[in-house]
Design a protein around this nucleic acid. Sequence first.
DNA 1: CGCGACGTTGATTTGCCTCAACGATTGTGG
DNA 2: CCACAATCGTTGAGGCAAATCAACGTCGCG
Lengths: 195, 195
Amino acid sequence: MNESQPLIDHIQKRVILNEDEVQAFLSYFKYLKIRKRQFIIQPGFVAHHKNYILKGAFRAYVVDDNGQDHTIQVSIEDWWISDYNSYVYQKPATMFVEALEPSIILQLDYKDEALLKHQNHKFETFFRIMAERSVAHMQRRIITNLTMNAEDRYKEYEALHPDIVQRMPQYALASYLGMTTEYLSRLRNKRAKKS
Amino acid sequence: MNESQPLIDHIQKRVILNEDEVQAFLSYFKYLKIRKRQFIIQPGFVAHHKNYILKGAFRAYVVDDNGQDHTIQVSIEDWWISDYNSYVYQKPATMFVEALEPSIILQLDYKDEALLKHQNHKFETFFRIMAERSVAHMQRRIITNLTMNAEDRYKEYEALHPDIVQRMPQYALASYLGMTTEYLSRLRNKRAKKS
DNA sequence: CGCGACGTTGATTTGCCTCAACGATTGTGG
DNA sequence: CCACAATCGTTGAGGCAAATCAACGTCGCG
C-alpha cells in the first residue's frame, strides 16, 4: 500500500492504467509537506506546478487594488489546485495559493506533465478529462455568480460542500462567494434566529 | 480551397496534422446554416454538439426564476460554443444558445468527438489544449467578476473585444457583464459626455 | 405605416458595503 | 501554562453602487 494511493485511485477512476503505467505516472510527482499559511504560489512567480492534495486544504486568491482578498478556488483532499492562468501559459501568477491547514501535496511539474501527455495517449486523456470537467465546473460557478444573490449563493455552496464549509475560515468563504465577512456573518445569524 | 479552411487553420495552430488527418478530422463535422434568432441548444434538451462558428455570432444564456437573462458566453467566427455542462456530462441543458446574426457553423457530435479523441493521440491533444485554455479564460472571468465594479468590467471587455462589442446587442452585453441594460446605457452616456 | 424590439432617461429603492467598535478564539513567547 | 497579542467573527449605523419601475424615444421590419 502506497502513500500515493489516493492519487492512484483518482486516476483509475478516469482512465484505466496497468501497473507499469501507474508507476510511470507517479514517478514524476514530488511528495511535499506544507505548513499552515505557507504559500505554494505567489504573484509574480510562474506557477510551475499542478498540485494534488493528499491531505489538508488550500485556497487560491487574488488581492485587488484596494487590498481586498478574493478567493478564486478552495480545495481539499483529492482535488487539484494551481493558478491555471499562470500554469497553462507559463507566465507570472496573479494569485496566492496558501495552505489553510498543515497539508501534504503531490506536485507535478509543468514540463513533466507535458512529457507524460506526450508519452502515453491515456495520460493525455486523463488531463483532457480533468480540464473538461473544470470547464463545466467553472461555467456553473459563473452562472451562480450572475444569477443568485448573496444569500442564495451561500445556501447553494453550503448544500453542495458542507464538509468544506466547516473547515474553511469565514473570510475565505465570504470572499469566495463574493461578499464581505460582515455580510456573511449577518446571513448566518439571521438564519440561526429562525430555528 | 475548402470552405472549412478556417477550422483547418484553427486546428493547425494547435497541433500539426498531415493531410489525411485533416480529412479524417473534418469528415465528422456537419456544415449548417443558422438563421438569426434560431436556437441551437435549448434548456431541457441534451447538447449533443460542440459548434465551431464559421460565420456569424451566438450567445449562450440562462433565464433565472425572475425571467431575467444572463449571458454566459458570446462567440463569433473562429470560436466554439455550447452548453459545456450539458455537453461534457451529456445531461439536459440549462442554457439557450441562440444566433445573434445569420450564421454558419460546423457541428461536431459528442460521440464523434469521442471517436476522434480515441482514434488519434493528436486529436486528443487538440481537445485537451482547447479545454485547458477555456479553464484559464473562465478563471480570468471569475476574477473580473469578483474584483471589478460594473464600469471597470465594461471598460475591460471593450478593450479586450472591441469587435464583439459592436456586433452585440446591448442587452446581451449588459447581461454578460452582470448589470442591467439601463445601467450600461448610463455608463456609455456618462462617458460620451466627457468627450 | 404601425408594431415590436431595443435603448434612454429620471425617480426611487435596496442589497450589500464601509467604517467602527467590540467580543471571541487562537496562537505564542516568557 | 498563563498572559497578552493577533486574528477572526459579530453587531450597529450610515452610505453608495446598481437595481427597479416607469415612461418615452427610436429604429428596423413585416
